[in-house]
């Protein structure tokens, strides 16, 4: 479905010799292709617009080097700018008094419960004592799902039936304090940013247990809606990081750029499978080439 951006740019620049400066016209034509590549990768329309304008400014007048042809030169600039936008990978910020609270939020089915368990296993491996909190009393068997995963990784799961999530989290916090847990991780129910009552519930939980990390879990296959989702959650709670899930598929994951531009918070993990170990830290360069749809050429360009 995706014609390689390199090929497209090479076609665009077919008439251009290797030397000289990139003219405004050259760059204009190239940016049309870049724009298409980004939109096909699900980067939000408005983000693409400002991104392309930025890159255009940088690219005009650039000297075409010996090593790269004009197409590659443009890709190099786009790639660098994307990396800048995506930002470096960051670790969880687990500081302050114990128990430190980490909360997972996001749309329905985005992968919250699964990533909660994955991150719990990861942190346990670093010597943390973890308490999982099953704060999704709505979806059928959501609690059982977390309990099953908790059992698999040998981590305790806190749950009390018939208690609303904010109160449940309050009790869990007290329990974690007394029990000497170092990290308390809350799995919340999936919700749309349009659902005011459920969004308020997140705000209430935040107010009660003051999470050090509120991680927005986003399905990497999400389309243009990503921007509004990010805005909605950011407006309700203090999002501190992103997890992009289902990166083991063939989606481009351009939503990462949209969300980054809106929230400015770092990407903290990638979910790369259904298994409990399928959690990776991300590499901006690799994600950038994936978004642009060109795994192979990037190495070459980075070395040039």
């Amino acid at each position: 479905m995706f014609e390689n951006l390199t090929e497209r740019l090479n076609k665009v620049f077919a008439g251009l010799t290797r030397r000289g400066k990139l003219s405004a016209e050259d760059v204009d034509v190239a940016m049309r292709e870049v724009r298409i590549a980004l939109l096909e990768a699900d980067v939000h329309y408005s983000v693409v617009k400002s991104f392309v304008a930025n890159v255009k400014e940088r690219a005009v007048g650039v000297e075409v080097s010996e090593a790269l042809n004009p197409g590659q030169q443009v890709i190099k600039i786009v790639h660098e700018e994307l990396i800048k936008t995506l930002g470096p990978s960051e670790r969880l910020n687990l500081t302050g008094e114990k128990p430190r609270v980490v909360m997972f939020v996001g749309l329905q089915g985005s992968g919250k419960t699964t990533q909660t368990a994955k991150v719990a296993k990861f942190l346990r491996g670093q010597g943390e004592r973890i308490l999982l909190v099953a704060a999704d009393p709505y979806r059928p068997a959501a609690v059982k799902q977390l309990q099953t995963l908790g059992q698999r990784i040998d981590v305790e799961v806190f749950y009390q039936e018939g208690i609303a999530p904010p109160e449940l989290c309050k009790r869990a916090f007290v329990y974690a304090q007394k029990g000497g847990f170092s990290v308390m991780m809350i799995d919340t129910a999936g919700r749309s940013q349009l659902d005011q009552a459920l969004m308020d519930e997140l705000g209430a939980i935040q107010k009660i247990v003051h999470p050090v990390e509120i991680l927005l879990v986003v399905d990497s296959m999400i389309g243009q809606e990503a921007l509004h989702v990010a805005e909605g959650f950011r407006d309700t709670v203090k999002i501190t990081g992103l997890i992009l899930s289902k990166m083991d598929g063939d989606s481009r994951g351009g939503a990462a750029i949209s969300i980054r531009s809106v929230t400015g918070v770092p990407i903290k993990f990638l979910g790369t499978g259904e298994g409990i170990d399928a959690l990776e830290s991300y590499d901006p360069s690799r994600l950038s080439s994936r978004i642009l749809g060109m795994g192979d050429i990037i190495g070459l360009i980075e070395r040039a």
Partner: peptide, 11 residues
């Protein structure tokens, strides 16, 4: 299909 899905839905 999840309606929030973008271009990947076709694939």
């Amino acid at each position: 299909l999840d309606a929030t899905t973008g271009q990947n839905a076709l694939s």
